[in-house]
Design a protein around this nucleic acid. Sequence first.
DNA 1: AATGAATGAGGCTTCATTCAT
DNA 2: AATGAATGAAGCCTCATTCAT
Lengths: 217, 217, 217, 217
Amino acid sequence: MGAVKNKRMPRAVREQQMLDAAVRTFGQRGYRAASMDEIADLAGVSKPLVYLYLNSKEDLFTACIRREAAALTAAVRAGVHPGLPADRQLWEGLRAFFTHTAQNPDGWAVLHLQARTHGEPFAAEVTAMREELVAFVTQLIAVAAREAHRDPSPAERAEHEVAGLAEALVGAAESLAAWANTTPGVSAKQAAATLMNFAWAGLGNLMDGRAWAPPKS
Amino acid sequence: MGAVKNKRMPRAVREQQMLDAAVRTFGQRGYRAASMDEIADLAGVSKPLVYLYLNSKEDLFTACIRREAAALTAAVRAGVHPGLPADRQLWEGLRAFFTHTAQNPDGWAVLHLQARTHGEPFAAEVTAMREELVAFVTQLIAVAAREAHRDPSPAERAEHEVAGLAEALVGAAESLAAWANTTPGVSAKQAAATLMNFAWAGLGNLMDGRAWAPPKS
Amino acid sequence: MGAVKNKRMPRAVREQQMLDAAVRTFGQRGYRAASMDEIADLAGVSKPLVYLYLNSKEDLFTACIRREAAALTAAVRAGVHPGLPADRQLWEGLRAFFTHTAQNPDGWAVLHLQARTHGEPFAAEVTAMREELVAFVTQLIAVAAREAHRDPSPAERAEHEVAGLAEALVGAAESLAAWANTTPGVSAKQAAATLMNFAWAGLGNLMDGRAWAPPKS
Amino acid sequence: MGAVKNKRMPRAVREQQMLDAAVRTFGQRGYRAASMDEIADLAGVSKPLVYLYLNSKEDLFTACIRREAAALTAAVRAGVHPGLPADRQLWEGLRAFFTHTAQNPDGWAVLHLQARTHGEPFAAEVTAMREELVAFVTQLIAVAAREAHRDPSPAERAEHEVAGLAEALVGAAESLAAWANTTPGVSAKQAAATLMNFAWAGLGNLMDGRAWAPPKS
DNA sequence: AATGAATGAGGCTTCATTCAT
DNA sequence: AATGAATGAAGCCTCATTCAT
């Protein structure tokens, strides 16, 4: 059990314990495979108390998503120092992202895998978080453009193009993170550097209009 | 129902019908939420027949993963013409990848979401496919380096640097495919172009030694 | 158990066994207090089979109501010989009614107590049956009036006066049936006689215009 | 909530609030479906207080039945003026009955539906009340007999015959009440008159020994 | 080659009730 | 006089799986 049982505690504390247990269980087993029994056990409380405080499995899952999403965006924002040059800011943001997700694998699994895998009450919650991160990156790109004395036109690119880049970045980051974790001799920092290398030049080219041109076929 | 019922058919055909139904159901509902009842219904057969041919839900899911993984890698290989220049080969491969995933959204959901979301019997199957794709990309990068007539020193870069790039590329592609599938108005070709733009310049820079350098902190 | 267990039987037979068990359980325990477990046990089957055939507790209860309502109205109609004089017809109908309810106390409890006690999906089912009985009695009263060679003026009494009498008669019958079921030493025939005595003179008086007049207050 | 919360109040007052809430909840939801949570909420107190004062759900329900039964019999007795002729007394009693039940639908539902629907601790409570009402009617019949200068023999009829009449009367009354409530153009008073018409002549005939004779079949 | 009949096990949820203050 | 914290027990329902034909 994750906590001493049967000790009276204020509601707020118990709720956090429940969310801790739920994030861990949902992250490892998946939404459907996770059982309320296991979550209650892990939280060190009886099932009815979980229902009293969190209402239903669906609500509990939603609460997990919200808490983890808030924690992640907060971590990324906290890692970035606004005064720095744009590339440095991106670097810091990526590092914060990697660090947070590495330290919260279950939370990240909840956000990235479970919430997206299970239908509509949940996916929307993640979309909101994702939009916040995309907005953050978009703004960084604009800053970078200004620094390079380029005209701000890139900011006018179709919204879904930027969203696509963000998707690609996140996908690459996840992939690298998993790879770094399972490949001896590769540190998290090196993985972040690889990603920066992969991404930064491409972003720069895009902003210069020097895009790779697909063949006309 | 997906097929005429009660008509005697050879086993191979029935199995494909079942796998079709299973891929669709698993892809849309998820592994746990999909019920053998629904799959059998959709396949137009009775449940015992599904068990007779495919043994168990786990085996059925595994069979789905294998079939879809084989179909995807085959599609990518078929899309690439070995004689072309490297960037063109990469482009063709990406196009084939995005086209196939766009035409098989349920199959892709099975591979990318469901199989990874549910523990160990399944994740390994996807890992195998992934490694095949990564190897393919790794080799393309090597070809590109040779074509650029650059001195071989870049090739001496730590092997895992190239491997990291390949990982990043594949991860980005996977993420973008899921995103393109669920975002209206984004075609397979656009997704491929977005990724090419994003990646190619970075690869070029790296091969020229113009890498982004992380701060020493 | 109410039946030999685990013997394969055609669906139609099993369904009747389940309905038998359900009527008995619902009638004795009440809708809420009856448990699907008990019903399945009494029917000699496992719970899932009950759900497979009858869908849900609500549907099962509805099916019980419908079956018992149909059986009751059929019994009343079967007891009446259309050629007889009206009082004799009424008597036969009442006898059939009280006999049937006495032989099916649980079914009658389901109709009279349980279905009316639990909200709207169910009450409507009983209302339909009730209306059929009321219509039957209404028509009998009209026949009686004609037989008495009385001038047609009574027939012109406000339609709802006749309807009110029919309602009162049916309501009295229902109440008496429940009472006869739970009072030892009261036979169906006695109950029918009591009601006939109670009602027939009143009906006669009314048809003669010798109505009791309420004080003007 | 039905009352201001957390205000210290004398026990007697709190108990009445709880009973009010309980009658309403039991009457609308039924005994089983009513939850102690809802009752406590509606009463504006915490659940432990309900248990402190009323002990258990069963005891609470019993207390409701007793209170409502007492209120109903009191209302009927209060409506009757002993000096009047018997028919007039019956009329007043019926009117009082109809009025009270119409104004206390939840209380009436508790007595008539819920208490009878749920087994033995409760049915007995209602039986007691019913016997009181039956005794009252019985005595009225005796008075009527005396007034008509008939010999009192009818009072010697088997007890359960009178009880049967009372049942029929109450059943008819209930039926008429429901019917009057749902049929436009029929007032409560008209319904009461219909019932008097229906009943009075029959009672008179019975007392004269002019009973309807069932065929010998 | 194919299916109608059947079930053990487990999951979500609710409820009456108590404890400690 | 009054309540926030907590739980054992039980109920409805679904599912993967098998048996007998």
